[in-house]
Design a protein around this nucleic acid. Structure first.
Lengths: 225, 225
DNA sequence: GTGACGATGACATTTCGATGACACGGAACC
DNA sequence: GGTTCCGTGTCATCGAAATGTCATCGTCAC
């Protein structure tokens, strides 16, 4: 779990990261909103600890504007007692929390852990064609429910074909999407990989059709294509 | 001892606080879940008395969702006889209690005092996969019930893997979530940490599978993966 | 029938992951 | 303040597995 701490107070710049690291969190530090903004574009964080008042402004304004762009990383605001009156400002977005200074580090840790955990659980898609299922998250392929183990290249090629079912895909396209720039366009790697793919999917009729002079396409026999 | 009472019935709004104050408890009052939620973020309570049915919903849903974030203040649910059938719902969390309306105030006081005495034991969620339990609050890991001591980084990596069971997780993702910005993307820290993690979890079959070219995934042998 | 394209088996090469040994740095403890 | 210990990162090496190459064979279209 990785956290960005945005704090300008020198003492807290030391204390907060130390506390969070003791809880096995990876911590980056920024001293102002500009630096924080940069870090937030470059890296992925599970949670951000934002001091309310920073040299270049009130962090709430920054967070609010990013929220409008769909940015959804949970934020813990550190706020002084005298800023508490307008604390409602910080809660337009349900995913956030705040902590009044001074606070106990244990409290901070608990809050940050809690916020980090609600991270957006993205369900990676599962591609389906005929009796083949390709789970992009698990990196698993099943044919008629039976698990089929594929090599990375085979998986990658099948994924590409399944993303364009029944479309003819040229060797060049496959090379460009599944191989890196160093791939030799004269080689027959694609053919070989297709052969290997077929042999692994031998749990039913051949779904990979060669289109002479064009490339390959995924097609279920009988689907009049 | 400070207690939050969440009740919408006007008579009970008077009777319950009065009873509890007579037992030397400090009582705050909220009329609905929204108000209660705000109070619970701002203040620390030793116990919450929650009516089951409130104008803005069933309090059980609210409590359950906060429990998932590790919130552990004991709750006493006030439930009508006709809601009793589904009372089990309220007891996923061991620290809670319930009282069927109508009730004797003495009974209420006894229960609240009993709950308050337990104090706010922090009981954050426990991740489980196969025979591995990871207690995010205690920062403890058990395999087949046996305590396994992990280093901070190892814990952090395991936590991330366990938050995405059976999903392939790339080295980059792990680096981004478990290390800070100083991490060298070219380094093999992730591999090394995985090796160390495996060697510590040698109380059963290897659950960490390398996905060649992709990263790692948590998978129990035999789970058709 | 024949010529080009695709399929495939065998083999070579490369890449990738695992791991042991070592180095560095911070915390704890004299 | 110095020293030791512990956690963590770096590096080099090993070995296995994945993947590319090549040669040969098959087959489809004209």
């Amino acid at each position: 779990m990785r956290v960005l701490v945005v704090e300008d107070d020198v003492e807290l710049q030391v204390a907060i990261p130390a506390a969070l690291r003791s809880a096995a969190l990876a911590v980056d530090l920024a001293g102002d909103i500009a630096t924080a903004d940069e870090a937030l574009w470059v890296n992925t964080y599970d949670c951000v600890v934002f001091d309310r008042m920073l040299p270049d402004g009130d962090s709430i304004g920054y967070v609010r504007s990013r929220r409008q762009d769909g940015w959804s990383v949970p934020v813990l605001f550190l706020t002084a007692m005298d800023q508490l009156a307008d604390r409602v400002d910080g809660f337009e977005h349900g995913g956030d929390d705040y902590l009044v200074k001074p606070f106990a580090v244990e409290e901070l840790i608990v809050r940050v852990l809690s916020l980090s955990r609600r991270g957006p659980t993205i369900r990676p898609p599962i591609l389906r064609y005929a009796d083949v299922e390709l789970d992009t998250g698990r990196r698993e392929v099943r044919r008629a429910g039976v698990l089929v183990t594929l090599r990375a290249k085979e998986f990658s090629v099948l994924e590409f074909l399944m993303s364009r079912p029944e479309q003819a895909v040229s060797r060049t396209e496959l090379l460009e999407h599944c191989w890196d720039a160093a791939a030799d366009p004269m080689s027959n790697v694609v053919d070989v990989t297709i052969t290997r793919l077929r042999s692994r999917l031998r749990g039913g009729p051949d779904l990979i059709q060669a289109v002479r002079g064009q490339g390959y396409r995924l097609i279920a026999p009988g689907s009049a294509g």
